[in-house]
Amino acid sequence: MNNEFTSINRGKNRIEKKFNQLKAQNKAGLVTFLTAGDPDPDTAQRILNGLPEAGADIIELGMPFSDPMADGPAIQLANLRALGNGMTLQKTLDQVASFRTLDNETPIVLMGYYNPIHYYGTQRFIDDAIEAGVDGLIIVDLPPEEDEELCHPCMTAGLNWIRLATPTADDERLSKILKHSSGFIYYVSIAGVTGTHSAQQSDTSEAVARIRKQTDLPVAVGFGIKTADHVANTVAVADAAVVGSALINTIAEGLEAQLSTDEIVTNLHAFVAELARGTIKN
């Protein structure tokens, strides 16, 4: 690949290992997205710790932000719940570090917006994220035009830079997106915010094929994936499916129904297990 950053030690890369492992098992990956600290830091840590056993192959954790511009209502509310209960960027890193004492295999990718990292200090954040056991970053509002901000320092430090590819990108734009991408490619299957409508499988299939022409990196597909059937349809054409808002909705519904913390945690893990059934390839 067109990539001058070679310091990512691919042998030790949890993400690459995971995709190789899945391939050997003839499985696709389930990527779960949850907002760190949602609904509150303690419950969120319990949810996080149980995700691998429930069936999550890769964990995406949203770093809470007051102004999540690319997210739909479900994730917006998750951000507000987390922040309202005292979640911070530092605590997000702490939760990853705590998770790593139990699990040193499951990749964790932090996803979010640039400002909290900008405020924290980019180099300090990269160092602390690696130290905590983070495997990669997806920063929504840092397109290739702003690569010098965080992408280049991340790749130099050996932290994967996972980029979003979108239906609005033509082949030329796509090659710009893929340059300096590592870990996997996250294909956003619709033009829109998270948690709204779902893409047509044929459109996704065509887009993933277009991406594969330009890269050997695994392709995960997300946005609008809500059920095990969606997962199965998605992984028929991709290496992994990302589920976010639908998971977060189970937390919101649990809170709405005034379920106990135990019930919320149990329900969420049960839903992850159900989604994971969609990842077995025929």
């Binding site: 690319a70 509002d141 397109p143 979003l164 609005t168 990108a169 734009r173």
Partner: peptide
């Protein structure tokens, strides 16, 4: 690239870039 000194720029989601 839309910079005034260190300020400005194009910090938007990829979908919006085109």
């Amino acid at each position: 690239n839309g910079h005034f000194g260190i300020f400005g720029g194009r910090f938007v989601a990829e979908t919006l870039m085109p």
